[in-house]
Design a protein around this nucleic acid. Structure first.
Lengths: 212, 212
DNA sequence: TTTATAAAACCGACCAGTTGGTTTGTAAAG
DNA sequence: CTTTACAAACCAACTGGTCGGTTTTATAAA
């Protein structure tokens, strides 16, 4: 077998094993020995492909980020023509995808944070860029950020096993976050943000029903 | 010194040390030896107060939960008379408090999850109860849950050091989440969810309809 | 108040097993 | 023959946890 592909195969096997371990046993159980055992490689083999454990984590993070980056790009291409805020839509959809994906990038993220919080810089940087795009395209940037935060809250809470929501609710809430029509009622233009006057009160008046 | 208070002091010191370690070095660095070193106690002393490491985590979790439970109760008493949805308001305010608190309960939560995901059952149960209360008092339960999820997203993202938001934005977004007036514009009664937003949103697909 | 005894809090050495990482050996690819 | 990919034994440091012993506090009889 070709040397390059042999390496590639081993690297892949190690990373797959790492994800499996995190998902099954939790991030605290991710050790080099465990990776070697799970992947079928020897420990030396793993160490040959990744000089340190941090290198494993970093590669894992990058791989998962690339995976969702690809999802993101594909989704973006689909909606950029029809949506008024394609960046937000894409980000929401990507987070939903991450939430429903078992070998989630988020797991790698958690593992990275546990071992080396500094690794979090990579995803943060990417996220900052996306956030800027979202804010720029939004009529109401704060509302857009809140929708983003909502999606992230759904994702992380379920990821941590602390979500009090049912699968059904989860799905429904994501759908609503994604539906622009659900949020136009209270948009406040960024240019002039006065205490819920203009648009908001008009929307309120238009609301068919209010609370008792 | 009294025996009971002596114990109390030691237990407290150990837990404080644990929080400090998690906050400074990450959950992966929380070890019994580290706790002993940080607290000034000997390892034996720590082990006398907590028979296992899991006991430390559990105590930590319970302590932090109690702390925020108290904040929650006090806040609830304050707003229960004036707010239409005191449970949601309280929960949002509590999450904001957790986000601004450095020795956050959430840190304990992360540590617990890493070591023993089963411990997550306690907070989840509590959260489920609160969520039920929020849903019951809400005109639009899904929207209430989304506001809750938004707050949680803000908290967790900043906690993980992956928040692309500035301190200012953080604060502003929490304020908006808490302001009921900002959200009345798009409430949809749970009893009948129709496409009232259809008028507001021209381009987008109609509201996904579910239960009657 | 003193003294005897117990119980609880605490210490620090120690244990077996695991950790990330190194070294040595070997076989295949180039 | 040199380099690369992998295997396996190995290592020092560290892991959660145990254990025998010392100090401090509590109880209560003398």
């Amino acid at each position: 077998m070709d040397n390059a592909t042999r390496s590639e195969r081993s690297r892949n096997a190690a990373l797959e094993a790492a994800i499996a371990i995190i998902a099954r046993d939790g991030p605290g159980r991710l050790t080099l020995d465990a990776i070697a055992r799970e992947s079928g490689l020897s420990k030396g083999g793993v160490m040959h492909q990744f000089r340190t454990k941090e290198a494993v984590l970093k590669a894992l993070l990058e791989r998962q980020m690339a995976h969702f980056e690809e999802f993101s790009t594909r989704y973006m291409a689909k909606v950029s023509a029809t949506s008024a805020n394609p960046n937000l839509a894409t980000q929401l959809a990507t987070i939903r995808e991450a939430a429903s994906s078992p070998n989630s990038a988020a797991l790698a993220l958690v593992a990275a944070m546990v071992e080396n919080p500094g690794l979090m810089a990579l995803p943060r940087e990417l996220e900052t860029k996306r956030m800027t795009a979202i804010k720029e395209e939004a009529t109401d940037p704060d509302l857009a950020m809140l929708r983003w935060a909502g999606a992230l809250g759904l994702l992380l809470s379920s990821l941590f096993g602390m979500s009090p929501l049912s699968k059904d609710e989860h799905q429904r809430l994501f759908a609503r976050l994604l539906d622009d029509g659900q949020w136009t009622g209270l948009e406040q233009p960024a240019t002039k943000r006065v205490a819920k006057s203009g648009a908001a009160s008009a929307a309120k008046a238009a609301t068919p029903r209010k609370r008792a």
